[in-house]
Every structure is written in C-alpha cells, then in structure tokens.
Amino acid sequence: SEEELIEKAEKLRKEFEFIWNGIRFIIRENADEIRRFEELLKE
C-alpha cells in the first residue's frame, strides 16, 4: 500500500541521514590528516 511505501521511504531517509552524518563526522575529524595527505600527493 501507499502508506507502507511512505513508511519504508521515511525509514530509508533516516538511515541515510544517519550514515551521512557519520561520514561527515569522520571527514570533519580527519580533515587535517586528509589535507596533509593531499599535500603529500602534490609533491
């Protein structure tokens, strides 16, 4: 039914948001290391 689809979509959206926030947190935490690594690659 349509309601089930909406519920599934909402659940997926929440899971995606949770994963995305996790990725963003990891990137933020490691931003300095990532930048340093990029500098090494440029040399």
Rank of each mutant, 00 (worst) to 15 (best):
F16V: 06
E7F: 05
L5E: 04
I26S: 00
F37N: 00
A31K: 02
F25L: 08
I23V: 04
I27E: 01
E43K: 07
I26A: 01
E39G: 02
L40E: 02
R28P: 06
E29A: 13
L12V: 03
D32C: 15
K14P: 03
K11T: 12
I27L: 12
N30Q: 14
S1R: 11
K42T: 06
N30G: 13
E29I: 14
E7R: 06
G22S: 12
E33H: 12
D32V: 07
N30H: 11
E3K: 07
E10R: 01
L5K: 04
E3V: 09
S1W: 13
W20I: 12
I19K: 00
S1P: 06
I27D: 01
N21G: 02
W20K: 00
I6W: 11
I27M: 03
F18V: 07
F25M: 06
N30F: 15
E17T: 09
F37E: 02
F18C: 15
R13E: 09
L5Q: 05
E4L: 05
E43V: 10
E29G: 14
N21A: 12
R24V: 14
L40A: 01
D32R: 11
I27R: 00
K42S: 09
K11E: 08
E43I: 13
F25K: 04
E3D: 10
I23Y: 00
I26F: 12
I6T: 10
F25D: 13
L12S: 03
R35E: 05
R24H: 11
E39D: 03
W20M: 01
S1H: 09
E15R: 12
E33Y: 14
N21T: 06
L41P: 01
A9M: 10
A9P: 08
F25S: 02
R36I: 06
L12T: 02
A9I: 13
E7K: 08
E43S: 09
R36K: 04
R28H: 07
I23E: 03
G22M: 15
E39K: 13
R24Y: 12
R35W: 07
E7N: 07
E2Q: 05
I23D: 04
E38T: 14
I26L: 07
K14N: 08
E10H: 12
E2L: 14
E29R: 06
E2H: 08
I19L: 05
K14H: 05
I19G: 00
L41T: 02
E2Y: 13
E17P: 00
I34E: 01
I23K: 00
R24W: 14
E38L: 15
N30I: 15
S1I: 13
L40D: 01
E17I: 12
E29S: 08
K8Q: 10
G22L: 15
K11L: 10
E7G: 06
I26Q: 01
F25E: 14
E10Q: 06
E38S: 10
E4V: 07
N21M: 10
K14I: 11
R35F: 11
R24D: 12
K8F: 14
L41Q: 01
F16P: 00
W20Y: 03
K11H: 09
I26N: 01
W20Q: 00
K42E: 04
K8P: 08
S1F: 11
N30C: 15
F18Y: 08
E38M: 14
R24L: 13
E2I: 13
R35I: 08
R35C: 15
R28N: 08
I6F: 11
G22P: 00
I26D: 03
E3M: 13
L12Y: 06
K14G: 07
F18K: 09
G22I: 15
L40P: 00
E2F: 14
A9H: 08
R24S: 13
I6P: 09
E17K: 05
I26C: 14
L5M: 06
K14V: 12
E17D: 02
R35A: 08
E10F: 02
G22D: 04
L40T: 02
E15S: 06
R36S: 01
F18T: 02
R24K: 08
E38V: 14
K14C: 14
R24T: 11
L5R: 03
E10Y: 04
I6Q: 07
I23R: 00
A9F: 13
E10G: 03
N30M: 15
E3Y: 08
N30E: 03
F16S: 00
L41A: 02
E39R: 02
F37T: 02
E4D: 08
A31I: 12
A9R: 02
F16M: 02
E7L: 10
W20D: 00
F16I: 03
I34N: 01
W20A: 01
K42G: 09
L40V: 03
N30P: 01
K14L: 08
